[in-house]
């Protein structure tokens, strides 16, 4: 059991646990959707004054802010106390592809320092640009689509919503464009 806690968890543990979390939120009278918090944060910061889209009773969404605060704590606990080795065992084909586009796979944690390291980075401007534009597109796209991976891919597909299937197809079109047509040209 101890070993299991410290080893990376396989997909057949993670997937059912994620559905259990969705189930726990539904029987809690809520839904599983992380990106809604971005709208709630806008509203809590007073964005209701500039757009009716943010003019709602955001305090009723406090439970979801508490939930993502929990996600942050969970990330801290898992990273500091349950992950003695934070290297990712990638498929060898992926390692070759990453090395060929200029991203190292040696001594990396969960994210590549070529993008996420803001201290020793020869391409600091590029890194900040990628994080900023990527984050912006996540925030814009999730609200436009009405949900993210949790709201559409997990909750929506679990309820057999055809709209969620279309959204998930969209997620993959976007992701494939970046991975296959943009990443080869930027590092």
């Amino acid at each position: 059991m101890n070993n299991f806690l410290y080893e990376p968890w396989p997909w057949y543990v993670a997937g059912p646990l994620i559905s259990l979390i969705m189930f726990a939120l539904i029987i809690g009278g809520k839904t599983f959707g992380v990106s809604s918090n971005l709208r709630t944060i806008c509203s809590a910061c007073g964005a209701g004054k500039i757009s009716g889209f943010f003019d709602f009773n955001w305090k009723a969404q406090t439970w979801n802010l508490v939930f993502i605060f929990g996600v942050l704590i969970g990330g801290y606990i898992a990273s500091n106390f349950m992950t003695p080795d934070d290297s990712i065992s990638l498929a060898s084909a992926t390692v070759d592809k990453l090395n060929s586009i200029g991203i190292s796979t040696e001594n990396q944690g969960y994210v590549p320092r070529e993008i996420f390291d803001l201290n020793n980075n020869a391409q600091l401007g590029l890194s900040i640009f990628l994080l900023a534009i990527g984050g912006f597109l996540v925030g814009f796209g999730t609200r436009y689509a009405g949900g993210c991976t949790s709201g559409h891919a997990i909750t929506g597909l679990s309820q057999l919503q055809i709209g969620s299937l279309i959204a998930v197809i969209g997620f993959f079109i976007g992701g494939l464009i970046v991975t296959h047509f943009i990443y080869p040209h930027i590092f």
Binding site: V34, I133, G134, V138, T149, V168, G174, I177, V178
Partner: peptide, 18 residues
């Protein structure tokens, strides 16, 4: 449209909101 825009951001940051 929203899905594609989110997908672009998902791959760029390597992270969805959670």
């Amino acid at each position: 449209f929203g899905g594609i825009i989110f997908g672009l951001g998902w791959a760029l940051t390597g992270a969805c909101p959670g």
